[in-house]
């Protein structure tokens, strides 16, 4: 039976493991310790661990900042005199957190490798990633060029490219950093490749939706379709990021990656639904314009168009909302108020 000392990082994840077979071990900054730590708040010889029939005995070596321990989720307590501790207890010395584990303790069952791992490996391959980035750069520049008629300065193009790539890189960096903290596995290229792919897919959708708007005047269904696409792309991106960076259980991963994007999209939809029921003082129609070569529907003759317009005139007029000011029905009907009505003191 051996003693395992795990060094924990800032968020409580294991960053190093040390195994001790002997009867006792010392920990501190001095080079003659069994476990040498660099924490400047430790004494040269900070504490000693000894094994006896009762378990592991812990002894603080009369240090400046003392030795603290925590059992489970309880508050930490200072170690006064020798003390026997249990496997899994956490030690706090200076700013360093350690966990002591008996080598006989059980470990959690193995996590199965996800089938997505293979896909992630493939798109994070430098060659694939390069192609993705070239495509993103290309579509960004092409979109910028084609969406306006005036000449574009190279500075603007450069700025646009830098902004795009910087945005993607920042996203990837944030998840990488989380991954590094939680799993000691940053996977920057994987994150970069995933978000690039999502961005590329969304650009493709925007192009397609322009074509749909032009041909089918999507109207109200435009935002709904857009939401549907985002409702797939965003959870997929979030799922992959969570899978790569955090140790969530599969169920929790699904819950978070669906609830967060759908929550935000849902809020947007509710806002839009409220707006839809409102009065709009101008006609709502699609303003998208493209060349005839992008037209997918046959035209109708102007005659037929005007004939069809006749149906538009059958608009149902709902009853006016009753308002306080229209209370006096008799006057509204008669128009001309009775003498008494006008003279009646109303206030």
């Amino acid at each position: 039976m051996a003693l395992i000392i795990e060094v924990l990082n800032k968020i409580g994840r294991v960053s190093e493991r040390h195994r001790f077979e002997g009867e006792s071990a010392t920990i501190g900054r001095a080079y003659d310790n069994d476990l040498i730590l660099g924490d400047t708040h430790l004494d040269a010889h900070h504490l000693r661990l000894t094994r006896d029939e009762e378990g592991i005995r812990l002894q603080d070596l009369d240090t400046l900042n003392g030795t603290w321990y925590r059992h489970g989720r309880a508050r930490r307590k200072r170690v006064e005199g020798p003390r026997v501790i249990e496997s899994g207890d956490e030690l706090i010395i200076g700013k360093t957190h350690l966990r002591l584990v008996d080598s006989a303790a059980e470990v959690a069952p193995a996590q199965p490798l996800h089938s997505m791992e293979d896909f992630i490996e493939r798109i994070a391959h430098p060659a694939v990633l390069t192609i993705l980035l070239l495509l993103i750069g290309g579509t960004t520049l092409a979109d910028n060029y084609l969406s306006q008629a005036t000449e574009i300065e190279w500075k603007d193009n450069l700025q646009m490219l830098v902004t795009t790539f910087l945005g993607l890189a920042i996203y990837a960096s944030v998840w990488s950093f989380l991954g590094y903290l939680v799993r000691q596995d940053s996977r920057f290229l994987a994150h970069f490749a995933i978000i690039s792919l999502v961005a590329l897919l969304f650009t493709g959708w925007e192009w397609l939706s322009g074509l749909l708007h032009f041909n089918f005047s999507l109207g109200d269904s435009g935002p709904t379709l857009n939401m549907l696409i985002l409702g797939i792309l965003l959870p997929a991106a979030l799922w992959l990021a969570l899978y790569l960076s955090l140790n969530l259980t599969p169920t929790w991963r699904w819950v978070v990656s669906l609830v967060v994007p759908w929550g935000f999209l849902g809020l947007g939809a509710i806002e839009r639904a409220q707006f839809d029921s409102d009065f709009v003082g101008r006609p709502v129609y699609s303003t998208t314009l493209k060349h005839d070569s992008r037209r997918l529907r046959p035209p109708v003759s102007m005659e037929e168009f005007i004939d069809r317009s006749d149906e538009l005139f059958d608009i149902e007029l709902p009853e006016k909302k009753p308002k306080k000011e229209d209370k006096s029905e008799s006057v509204a009907k008669n128009g001309a108020p009775e003498e008494s009505e006008v003279g009646a003191p109303q206030n």
Partner: peptide, 21 residues
């Protein structure tokens, strides 16, 4: 639209949009 009108006076616009020839 060429005129002003409020919710109490008019309905919303109803539109059709087509390619015409």
């Amino acid at each position: 639209p060429g005129n002003r009108a409020g919710e109490d006076d008019v309905s919303n616009f109803q539109c059709q949009q087509q390619f015409t020839e």
